[in-house]
Structures are given as C-alpha cells and as structure tokens.
C-alpha cells in the first residue's frame, strides 16, 4: 500500500553568514492512512522545519536541498509553485501553534472558512458555509452556526484551535501536519482536542504528523514516533517500542528526565549540557558530548541507521528489552 505521506532523504539548509546550516539532515519517514506519527524533539532539533519542508513552506535563505516528499505517491517537490499552491490546504494541510496568528482577525470565522473552501473548489458561498459548518461540528464545536458569525477574538483559545483544525479538514486532506498544536492550550482543553484528533484520524483516514516537544502527548496519541536531535531522526519505531523500550541514549535520557516517572523529591536523571548549535555540530555523532555511552568511534564516525524493526542512529544502542 502506498503511504499517505512518504518522506525520503529530506534535507533542508539555511544560508547564514558563515557556512550553511543543515536544519533537517537526511530525514526519512512515512505515515499510512489514518495513522498518527509523533515527531518529537527539543528546540532546534529541526522538527518544525521538517513540517514546513513537507508543506513546501521554506523561503530564502532556506532551501530544500535534497529528498522527496511523496503524498499518495506524488512527489510534491517535483511540482511547480502553482501546482504546489493547489496542493497546500487541499491535499496537505497544516495546523500551527498559535491560532491567533493563523486566523484572520478582521474576518468572521465563516467568511474565512468559506474562502478557504472556494479557493480549491468551485461552489456557491452558501454551500461553502454549509461545508464550514459541518467541519466545525466535526471538531466538536457547539452551536457551529453561531460560531460562523463570530470573529476570532470572540472565541477562546481552545475554540480558535478547533477552528484552525476544522479549516485544515475542509478538503479532506491526505496529510495533516500539526506543529505544537496544543502546546499553548490548557490541559483540560488539550485533552479534549487530542481525543478529537484521534477520532479524526480514525474516521477521516487522514495521515497526521503531530510535531511536539511533549513526549507525554505523543505517547498517548501517536501510533508511531520519530525522535529528532540536531536535524536527524535518531530513533524511529512504534509508540510502544520508543516509549517502553527506547534504544537511543538520547530518547532514554529524555524519558528518564520526566518527573512523573520518579519518586517525588528525588534527583532527576538529567542529560548534561545543552542542545548543540547546528552551526557548530561536533564531528561524528552530534549527541556524543552529552552521551553516557559514547566511545572513541563516536568522535569521528557519524552513526548509521541500525534497523531491526526500530531504527536507531547510534553506535551503541541500548539492548532490546
């Protein structure tokens, strides 16, 4: 079966005053219909740039320098700008962190949603408003008719994010990229939205890439997880494999540093140091200076994928347990 989204060897660079910085470095992953992939990493790991690259939203000084982005088997990178514009918001849609930045503050919700419908499909405004209403209903917005009349500032943060998700759903996209879509929300509202996202993946069959720094969110939401560090996917597997049996020392370190898993008041295991600057990556393995398992080979030779069901980019992966 063709994956809804298949990313192969994606590499995105940014020109700087010095050497170009590789924010996304040879990243590959795929998501089947109706599945949710959690893309996890800390600041600067390249997780958001990966999302933007899939959407073709990289502008100068950035450049996608290699790789393929296949949506239902068609390479988005081979498309002209004009064709790509027709795909964006249609076959591939994105939900951003801050819905106040993505919704137009001077247009009623209904007007901007209807506009988004009619960009890609010829229909009357009445019909477009009806589709918008249905989309709002699908994401659990109460009294959707009234919300169509509202301006974004009249809605709460959770409602706004639901509107943003509803807009992403308008054209039944094959792929939805959500970048920290619940990070700005309160936990009770986040819980509601995560439950709805899970339902949407099951009912609409959209493939969802859920980009976040929050391991707890992906561990309960995602089917598969990719962990990114310094522009590379360092570990990839099913959610269960990655969370219950992490094999990369970085994933292990991240999981260990979560307070919920430790007795209160005890010292938390911590990953020493801080995330490296992409312009000054160490030779060999980028995680080596912070890694408890590093040896001499890690100083010089970049690790290659070790694949046995769970992909690990490490010279000394943890044993399978």
């Amino acid at each position: 079966m063709t994956a809804a989204l298949d990313v192969q060897g994606l590499t995105t660079r940014f020109a700087t005053r010095g050497d170009p910085v590789t924010a996304v470095n040879d990243v590959s992953f795929s998501v089947q219909k109706g599945r949710i992939l959690g893309l996890v990493g800390e600041s600067g790991s390249g997780k958001s740039v990966t999302g933007f690259s899939v959407m073709g939203l990289i502008d100068a000084p950035g450049e996608i320098s290699a790789g393929k982005v296949l949506v239902d088997g068609n390479d988005l990178r081979a498309l002209s700008d004009e064709h790509m514009r027709k795909m964006r918001g249609n076959k591939v849609a994105m939900v951003f962190q801050d819905p106040m930045m993505t919704l137009n503050p001077v247009l009623r919700v209904g007007d901007q949603m209807a506009m988004a419908v009619r960009v890609h499909r010829k229909m009357s405004k009445t019909a477009a408003l009806e589709e918008s209403r249905a989309a709002l209903e699908a994401v659990g917005i109460p009294s959707p008719e009234e919300r169509l009349q509202a301006y974004p500032h009249q809605l709460s943060g959770g409602m706004r994010q639901r509107v943003a998700i509803a807009m992403a759903l308008l054209h039944s996209p094959s792929v939805i990229i959500a970048d920290e879509a619940t990070t700005a929300l309160d936990v009770s509202i986040q819980g509601q939205i995560l439950a709805e996202v899970r339902d949407l993946a099951d009912t609409t069959g959209a493939a969802i890439v859920w980009i976040t720094h929050d391991l707890a969110v992906v561990s309960s939401l995602a089917d598969d997880i990719c962990v990114m560090y310094a522009g590379k996917i360092v570990e990839r597997g099913t959610a269960q494999q990655v969370i219950d049996h992490p094999r990369h020392p970085y994933t292990k370190g991240l999981l260990d540093s979560i307070p919920a898993l430790h007795e209160p008041g005890k010292h938390l295991p911590q990953i020493p140091g801080s995330t490296p600057q992409l312009s000054r990556l160490p030779q060999g393995c980028p995680f080596r200076p912070r890694c408890p398992r590093a040896s001499d080979i890690c100083k010089t030779v970049p690790p290659a994928d070790t694949v046995d069901g769970q992909t690990v980019l490490c010279h000394h992966p943890l044993e399978r347990t």
Binding site: Q192, L194, L215, S219, I243, D244
Partner: peptide
C-alpha cells in the same frame, strides 16, 4: 484535571477530557 493530563506510557488510553470551556 488529573484525568486530562497526558502521561508517558503507551496503551491506547482515551483522554478523559473535562467538558466545556473555562
């Protein structure tokens, strides 16, 4: 509040969300 917080750990758990808005 406790029920709606995602916790690390797998096994497809339903989020028991609090209904309504703050």
């Amino acid at each position: 509040l406790f029920a709606s917080v995602p916790t690390v750990g797998t096994g497809k758990r339903r989020f028991e969300a609090i209904k309504g808005e703050i």
